[in-house]
Structures are given as C-alpha cells and as structure tokens.
Nucleic acid binder design. Structure first.
Length: 776
DNA sequence: ACATAATGGATTTTT
DNA sequence: TCCATTATGT
C-alpha cells in the first residue's frame, strides 16, 4: 500500500542518542499525522485502531512494531503479530525490515493466525493426541475423509454431500466448538452431526493429521486445559498486534483472549466497514464490542484518507451510510480534484465488456498504464466476458486469484507421491495416487485394501504389503500392487541420497506420470509446465519436510512481478489494493448484491454486500466507473436485469450518470432516474428506496406463477424475515431444496400456507403439504 | 477396466 | 452454458 509518502528511515541509529535511547523525535515518527502517531505511540494497554480505507493502516502497523522494538520495549521474539493472509504477513515483514534492518528476522511470531498456531501446535501436539510431525490437510483431503465417513454411515451422499459436511465441521471449528462442546442446536443429517464430527476428528487423529480449523481449535484446547503453558505464552508475548480484526472468527478471538496477558498490550487494527468475510465465519461483532472486551481500551480513528479523490470518497461514504450497526467513521481528504464517479447502464454484458475495453484503450492512450487499471467483479463468472473482449483487442490482462497453483490436480498428485514416500501411513496420499497413472488397479481392489486396512487398524500400505503375500487377490492385481510397493520403496531409498527436487523429478518420470500427461493433448502441456515450475520452486527449500509444511500453510506460489497488464479480479481479491482507475461492472440486482447472500443471510447478507461495494469504490484513487447491464446471460439463459439498489444509494452529488443507449434515460442523476422498471408493480415493504422496490419486482419476476414470496419480504421495521428460521413465517423459503419420500428431490417454487408448490427434479411440479417434505 | 452418456450443480476464498 | 461427477454399456 502506498497511502502516503514512503517513510525514509533506513538508519534508525541516527535517531538514537548514546546508549540506544531515542533522542527527541525518532525519524520514523515524522510524517505521521496526529492520529497515526497516537496509534503508534500508545503502546501500553488495549488499543483499537479503526483504520478506514486508505488511511495508512499498514504504515501505522509497521511503524508501531518498529517503535516498540526501537524504543527497547520488547525483543523481536516477544512480539506476536498476526494477519489473515500470507501476503499481508510478508508485506509487514518486508516493511519492518526496511525500518529496523535485519533484526526484523527475529520476529518469529509474525505470521498468519494459522502459521503461528501451527508453530505452537507442533510444540505441544502430544497434548491433543497428535505427533509433532502431523500433516495439515487441505479441503480436498477433508472432503475425502468426509465422503468415507458418510458412506460408512450409510448416508445418501447426494443429500448429505461430503462438501457440506466438511463445510459445517469447518464452521463449527471456526466457532471454537469441539465435538463435545457442540451445542445441540447444531446438527447435520438428522441428529448425526455430533457423531460424524467426532468420527471425523478420530479419523484425523489416526492419520496423525489436522485440518486448518484444528490448528486453532487444538490451540484452544491446549491453552485452556494447561494453565502453565498458557501462562508461558502470555509472558512471552509482551505486545500483541492483530491486523484485519474485523475478519476474526470466534476461534481466533478466543485464541487471542487466551494469549493476552493481564497487562493487555494488545492492539487490534481493522475497519468494520470492510468486513467481507462473514460467510467464512468472520464476526464483525468482535470489533464492534472491543471496548467491552477490553475495558479501558483506547479507540483511535484514522479518518484522513490519502488515497482517493473527494468524489470517490463521497460516493463510498454515502453508500456505506445505509448500513446499520457501524462504529462510524467519516473519511475526509484534502483532495479537491477529480471527476465524479461515473455510472452507466448498457444493454447487455457484452456491451459492458466492449465499453470497458474501449475506455481502457482510451485511458492507455492518455498515458495511464494498464497495470494502473482494474476490473473488479462480484463473482468470477463475470470475468469471462472481459477476457474474451481483451483477447480480441489484444489488451494485456492478468486474472488475479482463480485456481491456485498448489490446488491443481497434477501438483496435488506430485505431493501425494512425496507424502507417501515420506510417511508410509499417509492413507489419503495412498488413495490419491495408487492408481494414478493407471496401473490396472480397479476401484474394487483399492476399496478392498482400504477396508482391510480400516478393519485391522493399519495403514493402507501395510495392508497391501500383507495382501501381496497372500492369494486373496487376482494374480494381475497382485503384481500391480507389488510393483507399486516396489517403486515406492525404491524412491524412499533414493530420497536418502538425493535432493528433494531430484526425487520429485525421478518419481514423476519413473511412475509414468509425465508420460500420462504427454499423452493428454488437451491439458498435458500446461500440466507438465506446472510440474516443472513445481520442481523449480522446491529448490528454495531445505528439504522435503520444510517444503511440504510451507505449501500446506501458504498454498500459493510467490510469483514474480506482473507485467503491465489490466488487473481483473473479484472484489474480495481486491481488498487492500488500490488502482488509479477502477471499473466496477455488474451492479445489478441478483448479481451485486448477490441473490444468494440475501436469500441465505437476509439483511446481514445485504449489509455485507454493501460493504463489498464500499471496498470496491474505495479501491479507486482517481477514477471509478460503475456499470450495469439490462440483460445478462446467466448459466446460458438470458435474464433481464435491474440496476442494483447500490446504484440508487450513491449520493447524487458525487456521481454522474451516463447513458450508453438512452435506454435508462438516467440523465438527471440516479435518484431521479426513470427507468422502465420504475413502473413495475412492487410488493409492499417497509423499505422504500426505488432500488429496493425494483429489486422486489425483480425477485418476484424471476419465478413466474409464484405468489409474492412472504418469507423474503421485509418486516415493518425493515428487517428481513430470516429465511430458513423455523420461527419466522412457515419456515419455508422459495428456492429451498427439499426431499419428498415419493417424489424425490425438488425445489420450492411457492408457499401457500402449509402447502408448497415444489418443482421436483423427476416428478415435475406438485403441490404438497409441507410436513411431507424435509429440507436438504 | 475403460470409454461414453446422462445428470446435476453452479458465489465470494484464506488458511 | 459448461463443468465435473456418476451411471451405463462394452
């Protein structure tokens, strides 16, 4: 981030008097505004820094750490500094190194929540039934385990998908619930929730593995059950710093509380208006109640924005003011330049892509670099239209995010080989590659092995070793297994005498994996390239173990500097970034705000969407251009779209409405804009913004024949009746997936008292009494 | 055991 | 629409 002039404090010693004691004002404090400086210098006691977008948050964070170190208040290893992303941790480390020099390397406890928790867990693993060599599973492994458990429990994996089980377990862990502490309001698959969760944990223990949620959850168990250990850490961490506090979940919150000593030198930095990870368990509440949690806490607001023009700031502030339950900040700037935020309506998604691509070219000709422009979308499916257009016009672009390197199948396969070579009992790795490439081992023979392994309580490899000495298998299968074992053993030998990347090359070659990819015309070459890149990146690590630990926690490759290209990414991915020129397409009801967010989380979901819009607008430094289309192809079907309610919420003084097609006639500013949808019938609600009314009309329009969906209407006080809440209305919501004994699976199209109109996948549309179906 | 047809599902994303 | 996973056939 570059919120303000970069600090020039390459030599701290210069600001020190004799004996290393700072004399006068140290250089690194100069150039901070009064609030920033207060946030840096208030080192003792709990501090909450509410740092609005573009107010110099990262600078404050790093300067604060440097200040604590430079003033001799603590040694590097006595600081605990946690972030959410590896990127943020990396950036913080770099900037502190810049401030205080190489002694920043002593910051052992600067990292993500998960990496710090992993460090702690490795030291005390045995207290939660793990060996310190435990492996960290990724989501794919988790779902695999879940699938096996669901199958073992004879549950229909169509109705109760591995994904949803893994998801709910993760959710429980985020809330800090172990199986024993799971509240009985929580469940999965009709009363089997707790049992499945406990079985999942048992299985992980037998694999000597834990998932991401466990890193924190096991920490909670250790720290709350062993007072002496907790005390040791509390003494060690004399100062605690937390970045992006608005995104902490319950488990992380509890973890911090356990590590905070009575001196309470804890500084949390965040912005409640930028909390956009609620769907991942983040609790905005944590930041909202900071002052109650830490009595006597000092709250410092950073409100001076160094990033955006006053129009951009005005537009963003007006938008976010529609949210309730904010701590409230008023961003201001001395800037007085710049254009109003432009809002345009276009005919369809293709026209939108054309418009934006053209404007990118125009901006380019005016001297703005491609890399200074960004297209920020709500969801990745929106990216395609832009990519197609950019390719056609040869506009260089980079998609940020997307499928991640270490999650690609070929990379995971390579890792599975390495894991199995490293530890014989990694059953998940075994399963993954035992027949990849094809070795003539069928599903039945592999399942047989796994079943025997589970029954006798040994690793799959051991079971195979036993089986090939018996005559329980067909000769062909037996040979295939024997060869596989022989190969693994040979590679394990090889690993003793060679480097881990040579091992990887050898394994990929000798296993036939590269040959398999060469035979694949479609994707083979890309995959081989990825594997080459993998071998390359492995060389930066000391050994296999260190490498695997790194990838399981970091999950992404630190790619080199990007070329001069337009940055295309989701709004989530854009958090923390800034660009001179920002395009925000797809501001349409259902797309943004996303229909699903509203359906699933009601008013809360809507507010989070609005925060996302706020994040989007505040990414822009000089120019922000919002657009919406009247028609859009969604999953191959054409849908007519309504402008987002967020468009109407933009304050008129800071926006300039332009009409591409004349279709919207939005000449007099957005609020006065007459669009053809203003004439459409809307259903009564306590909320009267035109955008909202149009949204209602839109929602009802999407499902012809449906009655006004009672469950999605607003109460008189403007609160959404929570969908899915049994206490609210009939407890059914249009769109719910249901299961019926006779008709099978279907989707609720309308609710009429205790009767539901359900479109069954197989049996067609039927009217059924609601007690005969259950939610899936 | 493998190739092909049918089915169903589809945000946001970090660790 | 389009992708991935599953059912089906040889």
């Amino acid at each position: 981030m570059t919120e303000s002039a970069p600090p020039r404090i390459s030599d701290l010693a210069r600001s020190h008097g004799p004996g290393g004691v700072p004399a006068g004002t140290p250089d690194y404090l100069k150039g901070l505004n009064p609030e920033q400086r207060e946030a840096v210098e208030t080192t003792e006691g709990p501090v909450l820094v509410l740092a609005g977008a573009g107010t110099g948050k990262t600078r404050v964070l790093t300067t604060r750490l440097a200040h604590i170190l430079a003033s001799g208040r603590a040694k590097p290893w006595e600081l605990l500094a946690v972030t959410f992303t590896n990127k943020a941790a990396r950036e913080m480390r770099e900037r502190i190194t810049h401030l205080i020099g190489p002694s920043a390397e002593g910051l052992r406890w600067l990292g993500t929540f998960h990496s710090v928790a992993a460090q702690i867990l490795r030291r005390h693993a045995e207290l939660v039934g793990l060996k310190s060599t435990f492996t960290i599973l990724d989501t794919d492994d988790q779902e695999r385990v879940c699938k096996q458990l669901l199958e073992a429990a004879n549950l229909d994996t169509k109705r109760w998908t591995p994904r949803s089980l893994s998801g709910i377990i993760d959710h429980w862990k985020n809330r800090g619930w172990t199986p024993e502490k799971l509240p009985n309001t929580e469940d999965f698959a009709n009363g089997k929730g707790q049992t499945l969760y406990a079985a999942y944990q048992a299985r992980l223990a037998s694999l000597n593995a834990c998932d991401f949620g466990d890193l924190l959850l096991h920490n909670l168990t250790i720290l709350s059950q062993h007072a002496d250990i907790a005390e040791e850490y509390r003494r060690r961490f004399r100062y605690i710093l937390v970045d992006e506090y608005q995104d902490t979940n319950v488990a992380q919150y509890l973890w911090l509380r356990l590590l905070t000593s009575s001196t309470g030198n804890v500084c949390c930095v965040g912005d409640d208006d930028q909390s956009i990870y609620g769907w991942r368990g983040a609790e905005v509440d944590n930041i909202l109640r900071f002052e109650r949690d830490f009595p006597g806490a000092k709250v410092i607001r950073l409100e001076r924005n160094y990033r955006s023009t006053h129009h951009i700031l005005g537009a963003a502030s007006g938008l976010i003011s529609a949210n309730r339950g904010r701590l409230g900040k008023t961003l201001w700037t001395e800037d007085n330049s710049g254009d109003k935020v432009r809002v345009r309506g276009v005919w369809d998604g293709e026209a939108e892509a054309r418009l934006i691509a053209d404007e990118i070219e125009t901006a380019r000709r005016q001297g703005i670099g491609y890399k200074d422009m960004a297209v920020l979308v709500r969801a990745s499916f929106q990216m395609r239209a832009f990519e197609e257009r950019f390719v056609m016009l040869a506009v260089p672009y980079t998609v940020i995010g997307g499928p991640r390197f270490f999650e690609r199948a070929e990379i995971r396969d390579a890792h599975a080989y390495l894991r199995l070579i490293l530890s014989e009992d990694d059953d998940l790795a075994f399963e993954r590659i035992v027949n990849v490439p094809k070795r003539g081992l069928g599903d039945t023979s592999v399942q047989k092995v796994l079943q025997i392994a589970r029954e006798t309580g040994v690793p799959a490899m051991t079971a195979v070793r036993d089986l090939i000495t018996s005559d329980e298998l067909q000769a062909r299968t037996r040979t295939a297994f024997a060869n596989f074992i022989r190969d693994i053993d040979r590679w394990r030998q090889f690993a003793q005498t060679s480097s881990h990347w040579e091992l990887t090359e050898t394994v990929l070659e000798e296993s036939g994996y590269t040959d398999m990819q060469k035979a694949d015309r479609a994707t083979g070459q890309t995959r081989l390239d990825n594997l080459k890149e993998l071998v390359q990146s492995m060389q930066a690590f000391d050994g296999l173990t260190a490498y695997l630990e790194h990838v399981s926690l970091v999950m992404d490759l630190d790619r080199g500097e990007s070329a001069d290209s337009v940055q295309v990414m989701t709004l989530h991915g854009a958090k923390g970034l800034e660009f001179p020129l920002v395009f925000l397409p797809g501001w349409e009801e259902g797309v943004f705000p996303s229909q699903r967010s509203i359906d699933e989380k009601g008013e809360k979901g809507l507010e989070e969407e609005r925060r996302l819009a706020y994040v989007g607008v505040t990414r822009g430094k000089e120019d922000v251009r919002i657009s919406f289309a009247a028609n859009r192809q969604v999953y191959g079907r054409w849908q007519s779209q309504l402008p987002s309610r967020f468009v109407d919420e933009l304050p008129i003084d800071h926006v300039e409405a332009q009409s591409d097609t004349g279709y919207y006639g939005a000449s007099g500013g957005m609020r006065e804009a007459k669009s053809r949808w203003d004439e459409m019938p809307s259903f009564g609600s306590g909320y009267s913004s035109p955008g909202w009314k149009r949204g209602q009309a839109f929602a009802a329009n999407r499902v012809p024949n449906a009655q006004p969906a009672r469950q999605t209407l607003l109460e008189g006080d403007g609160r959404l009746v929570a969908s899915g809440d049994p206490k609210a209305g009939s407890g059914w919501t249009k769109g719910d997936r249901v299961f019926h004994q006779k008709f099978g699976y279907g989707q609720v199209r309308a609710i009429e008292g205790n009767k539901l109109v359900v479109a069954f996948d197989k049996a067609g549309e039927k009217k059924v009494i609601d007690t005969f179906v259950e939610k899936t």
